[in-house]
């Protein structure tokens, strides 16, 4: 549905986006993740035909945005970073204007009413946009993108400025829209992307640093062979006991006496070995009570931070753990 190939955008000598490629299939929600200034908005502006690319191509449903802009734009609903609102109009006037601008064919009154209900702005529809709160403005911006029911929605940080309840509502709405729209969603808020998206593209400094499904991304980065445990007993004894487990690389006492007589350990086994049963058995045999065991699986946050702060994709899990071990 959306195909981006080797997209590059330069402003003079500064390269904002460099050789980006990704695709989004029909009814897929693609999350676009990156720190501020990574090139998210630039990419979205190119996709929607607001900017042109220096090199590479962007196709919406097989139609090149630069070659047949009007036809391609017809299929896109775009919510830019700052919602493009005419502040001197009322919400309804504005939506009618957008309706006319997009040359919609749907029955105007029922269509706009449906959208207002969907993004919950029915109660402010006769108010002048200037006087609305930021959250409402954001929702009017979203409503504008939905006018004409375009098959592709491109949303640049759609939940910015909303209160927590609204954020959850909008996320649920996006998820719902994702069932029959192709959605590209940018954000620097990870739980948002994790909660909503099927696929994640992480970009940093204009380059794609990761491109995978949300689950895969967290899984690849995770480390099942790395455990964090808490257990009762003298730490030197426990350490000796656990070190003798076959496949164990390193046992590291993280904190002594987390609770009375309880210490926390990091266990680092060879990749691919499952040491959980052995750990439990050996501790039980010596009457050391196991109080906690969890795999040191990375949250997307850690993955993100690690990827965007330097380490290349692949060595991430290791380096994040080093980070923890030496804390």
């Amino acid at each position: 549905m959306i195909e981006v190939k080797n997209l590059t955008k330069r402003y003079g000598s500064k390269t904002a986006v460099s050789n980006i490629s990704f695709t989004a299939e029909e009814s897929e929600i693609l999350g676009f993740l990156g720190p501020n200034g990574a090139g998210k908005s630039t990419t979205m502006n190119i996709l929607t035909g607001y900017l042109s690319s220096t090199e590479g191509e962007a196709k919406i449903n097989g139609i090149d945005i630069l070659e047949e802009p009007v036809k391609a734009k017809q299929m896109i609903g775009y919510l830019p970073e700052q919602p493009p609102l005419y502040l001197d109009m009322t919400v309804m006037e504005y939506l009618k204007f957008v309706y006319g601008l997009k040359k919609c064919k749907l029955p105007i009154n029922s269509h706009l009413k449906e959208i207002c209900d969907l993004v919950k702005i029915t109660d402010v529809k006769d108010r002048v946009i200037k006087n609305l709160s930021k959250g409402y403005k954001q929702r009017v911006g979203l409503a504008q993108a939905l006018v004409g029911n375009p098959p592709v929605l491109i949303l640049d940080e759609p939940t910015v400025g909303l209160d927590p309840k609204q954020i959850i509502e909008i996320r649920a709405l996006i998820k719902k829209l994702g069932k029959n729209h192709t959605v590209i969603l940018s954000s620097h808020i990870l739980p948002e992307i994790q909660a909503v998206c099927d696929k994640i593209v992480i970009i940093n400094r204009g380059k794609v640093v990761a491109n995978d499904s949300a689950d895969n991304l967290a899984r690849n980065m995770s480390a099942d062979h790395k455990l964090v445990i808490r257990c009762e007993g003298a730490s030197t004894d426990v350490k000796k006991l656990l070190s003798s487990i076959p496949g164990m690389d390193e046992v590291f006492v993280n904190r002594e006496n987390v609770e009375e007589g309880v210490s926390e350990y990091f266990l680092n086994a060879k990749p691919g070995t499952d040491i959980r049963r052995e750990v439990s058995k050996r501790l039980a045999s010596r009457n050391y009570t196991l109080l906690m065991m969890k795999s040191s699986e990375l949250t997307l946050e850690e993955v993100f931070l690690k990827i965007t702060t330097g380490d290349i994709y692949g060595n991430v899990a290791d380096s994040v753990d080093k980070l923890k071990f030496t804390k």
Binding site: N45, T48, G49, Y50, P69, V70, K71, K73, Q74, I76, Y78, P80, Q82, P84, L85, Y86, L87, V98, L101, K102, K103, Q144
Partner: peptide, 14 residues
């Protein structure tokens, strides 16, 4: 200034 050109320039109009 108000960035409303992002609406008009990304709308399917010439």
């Amino acid at each position: 200034k108000q960035k409303t050109d992002q609406l008009t320039l990304t709308a399917p109009v010439s």
